[in-house]
């Protein structure tokens, strides 16, 4: 139950999501579905059975009309940096924390489908494949060759588009560079976001946009009190939104799912 070994690495990837910019359009979700070869079932209205690595929660301040406000909290995997809840519980080492990048990934061909990780994650970032992956006739053509679709009976989660890191590194290597430039490796969701609410990058690079953003006064993380140390940060100037980021004693709970 020790912490992850700190490895001398110049990389630690993270994400900042500006909730004041987010309009909840869901382009990030669709970009993720497309990038990561998700299949779609005919009915996706049962959200407890709908795999969305990048899930956008719609929340409200709970005030009655006409003082109501809604906001959106996009929730990728937090890639918890401290004693990653899903990594330590996996009995077969199918979940991996990469000490070089900080990325938490899932090995689908190793997973036995016990779902202990699903239970251990407080962010509901882990999903289970309840059904066989099926694409309608002809639709399999849009499968991304860099990403394996998941078989029935295994758990899966957001990988920070890990395969894109590999591609970016290959490209840098060909160009004779050892280090990646800021923005060279971004996730599909960050790439798609129309309001540019999502910033992705190397938190250990002091010059990166993300390293500056996480020091913003409105920055917070989800459920910080648990000590999971998520690598996904949120920004908001609205106090009611920031309050929804963690449980707090003595606060009248008003806001919630819209």
């Amino acid at each position: 139950m020790s912490e992850h070994q700190e490895v001398a690495s110049k990389e630690k990837y993270g994400m900042v999501i500006d909730l004041d910019k987010c309009t909840g359009c869901g382009a990030c979700t669709v970009a993720c579905l497309s990038e990561n070869n998700h299949y779609v079932r005919e009915d996706e209205s049962d959200k407890l059975h709908s795999v969305t690595w990048m899930k956008v929660y719609k929340v409200t301040n709970g005030e009655p009309f006409p003082n109501t406000k809604v906001a959106f909290i996009p929730r990728p995997c937090m890639h918890c940096d401290h004693h990653t809840p899903c990594v330590s519980v996996c009995p077969v080492m199918a979940t991996d924390y990469n000490p070089l990048t900080g990325i938490v990934s899932q090995i689908y061909t190793r997973c036995i489908g016990c779902r202990y990780c699903v239970g251990a994650c407080p962010y509901h970032a882990r999903y289970f494949n309840w059904w066989d992956p099926v694409w309608p006739e002809g639709m399999h053509k849009l499968l991304n060759p860099d990403m394996s679709p998941r078989m029935r009976g295994v758990a899966e989660k957001c990988s920070f588009c890990n395969h894109r890191l590999q591609k970016a590194k290959d490209k840098a290597y060909v160009e004779g560079r050892k280090e990646l430039k800021d923005g060279e490796y971004v996730t599909a969701c960050a790439e798609a976001c129309p309001t540019r609410a999502i910033t992705f990058g190397n938190m250990k690079d002091p010059e990166s946009a993300i390293a500056k953003l996480i020091k913003s006064p409105g920055a917070f993380r989800l459920l910080e009190k648990l000590g999971t140390q998520p690598k996904v940060y949120y920004l908001s100037n609205e106090s009611w939104i920031r309050e929804l980021g963690d449980n707090a004693l003595g606060r009248k709970k008003r806001g919630g799912l819209a």
């Binding site: 869901g26 382009a27 639709m139 053509k141 849009l142 798609a192």
Partner: peptide, 17 residues
């Protein structure tokens, strides 16, 4: 560089059933 959800899903029109 931004895209909306519909635009990002466009291939499902191309390959649609």
């Amino acid at each position: 560089g931004g895209i909306c959800p519909l635009g990002a899903a466009g291939l499902q029109l191309l390959y649609g059933t």
